[in-house]
């Protein structure tokens, strides 16, 4: 039997890698993929919890997360397209209109 903690460590590792990717990549598409990574990391831990607690609520939550992820991906990618159309770039460090 695999201990729960192993899953959680795995989840934490993937989550941290997602954060790292989000914080470092210039390409906004990769940043989006990093977000997906983080969501998957959470999913892993939720499913693991569900399994070890013999409770299906975790699965339900994962189901919803996947739904939201799908919605978020579609909207986010639409935004990227709109952005790309206006700025002709996908590099976030070239978009600094919010500079104070």
């Amino acid at each position: 039997m695999v201990p729960l903690n192993w899953y959680l460590i795995l989840s934490a590792a993937v989550f941290s890698i997602g954060i790292f990717g989000f914080l470092t990549r210039r390409n906004i598409i990769i940043m989006f993929m990093s977000i997906e990574l983080m969501l998957n990391a959470v999913n892993i831990s939720l499913v693991a919890f569900s399994h070890y607690l013999q409770d299906l609520r975790g699965h339900v939550l994962v189901f919803f997360i996947i739904t939201v992820a799908a919605a978020e991906a579609s909207i986010g990618l639409a935004i990227i397209i709109a952005l790309f159309r206006n700025k002709n770039t996908v590099h976030v460090d070239e978009m600094n209109e919010m500079k104070g």
């Binding site: 989000f22 940043m31 104070g100």
Partner: peptide, 17 residues
């Protein structure tokens, strides 16, 4: 304080993290 507002997404995200 204004200098914190670099307008770079990553900087905001880093501060959030």
């Amino acid at each position: 304080l204004r200098r914190l507002q670099t307008g770079l997404l990553q900087h905001y995200a880093t501060i959030m993290a």
